[in-house]
Write a protein that binds this DNA or RNA. Structure first.
Lengths: 159, 159
DNA sequence: TAGACTATTTATAATGA
DNA sequence: TTCATTATAAATAGTCT
């Protein structure tokens, strides 16, 4: 790594954490690909972000490796396989926006959301206004998602 | 890495390949642990060596992450990339709360959410303030859900 | 904001014991 | 073989755009 003072701990600044998550997730998947190509190993990785978004890497595929793992290891009684309703790109976007909106306004323990509106300092009003606009966008997007949900459901059955 | 001339290809010498496999597997697991600790993500990795030995890493556990992945409807198996954002039951609950919060402040087709904050009439400010307080509660709920997510995850692995 | 860039730290292939 | 060492490549946190 770089420019890190040898300490592994949670990044508190949410925007930095978001960037770090993306970079490190890509780095991890890259390492997995190299392990596969160099050593001819089968690898599967599943990652969930703090917000609940899922990312996966699998070679030859996530499912095949997981299934093999299940067979090899303790025979889990779980009902394998997937496919509930997959999520659209729009839904994924919602997750990202939620994540960002929440974290952006909750950094470092000090947050405009932690105060009563009446008690906001003058300088904080601008922050609150921006946060509100952001929240409004999020709400709208969510509304659109709900409205278009029905029409998308058919398309999602395969992905 | 080191002393490698930028080429990613299978190591032919089996003893060297074995050494490389062990090192890289440890490196990969280490990266996964860092991703978890730094970005608070959930990660599961399953690796099969060429010889067929299985190695796994999971935080909080391989099974819980895999189960969650399956529930998320991760059908798409393939290499890399966002499978999808997924909504758990808890997240759907959040959605309902969001919806309700929005509708509550949409009396008579006229909604404070439809205006720029700067352009609110004097009388609307109180409405907006109340709406904001409501939104804040919602946000808190979402935060609490995220915070308690890790501790609950184990319990949810069966659901 | 998302990409480049850069200064460092890490990871690791080769080597030696 | 399996450590430890070391020289070098790669990853990445911070920074700048």
């Amino acid at each position: 790594m770089a420019r890190r003072s040898s300490e592994i701990k949670k990044i508190q600044d949410s925007s930095k954490r978001y960037v770090a998550f993306t970079k490190r997730r890509n780095g991890l998947f890259n390492k997995a690909r190299e392990l596969h190509e160099i050593c001819d190993a089968s690898v599967a990785i599943i990652v969930f972000s703090l917000a609940g978004n899922a990312y996966a890497f699998g070679d030859p595929s996530v499912c095949s490796v997981v299934d093999r793992y299940r067979q090899a290891g303790a025979a889990s009684p779980d009902n394998i396989i997937p496919v509930a309703g997959n999520l659209t790109a729009a839904e994924k976007k919602i997750g990202e926006i939620l994540e960002k909106a929440v974290e952006t306004n909750c950094t470092g323990g000090r947050s405009v959301w932690d105060k009563e509106v009446d008690k906001l300092e003058f300088g904080e009003i601008e922050d609150m206004k921006n946060a509100m606009e952001e929240m409004k966008k999020m709400i709208r997007l969510y509304q659109r998602r709900i409205l278009s949900d029905e029409s998308n459901r058919a398309k999602r059955s395969h992905a």
